[in-house]
């Protein structure tokens, strides 16, 4: 099967080193793995995610006056947009509703919940 990450080009291309995707924190790799796993099992079309990711990155660039305003040495901005695209695609398909995600996020943020599983 073709590697779907290779379809991500230009500003949407994965941060890589020597051709391999690099993650500068575990949350980035979890976000990456979730999107790939859900796409593989058919929760959404990779193309729909790709389009959404490009739009999210374009929004982020516009917010700082264009691509040259982007500073993202550790990939945090890229993977925050990745996560936004994934959340949006999953909400559109009623896999995870936005309020449900926001509620659970608050539980982790405040320490009410600490276990992923």
């Amino acid at each position: 099967m073709a590697d779907p990450t290779l379809e991500l080009e230009g500003a949407a291309a994965l941060p890589r080193s020597n051709g391999e995707p690099v993650f500068s924190a575990p949350w980035q790799s979890r976000a990456f793995g979730m999107a790939m796993a859900l796409s593989e099992q058919g929760a959404f079309e990779w193309e729909d995610f790709r389009v959404r990711l490009i739009a999210e990155i374009a929004d982020a660039e516009a917010a700082v006056g264009g691509p040259e305003g982007i500073e993202d040495e550790d990939g945090s901005l890229y993977y925050s947009r990745w996560l936004a695209a994934l959340s949006a695609v999953l909400a559109e398909r009623d896999v995870v509703a936005s309020p449900e995600l926001a509620g659970r996020e608050e539980e982790f943020r405040t320490g009410v919940r600490r276990e992923v599983y």
Partner: peptide, 25 residues
């Protein structure tokens, strides 16, 4: 961090809903 919390929230919900497993990820 906010992003860590969001990622954990998403993963925990996906696992609960049977849409993903930690092993597959």
């Amino acid at each position: 961090s906010e992003l860590e919390a969001r990622v954990r929230a998403l993963e925990s919900l996906l696992i609960e809903k049977g849409r993903a497993t930690p092993e597959a990820i």
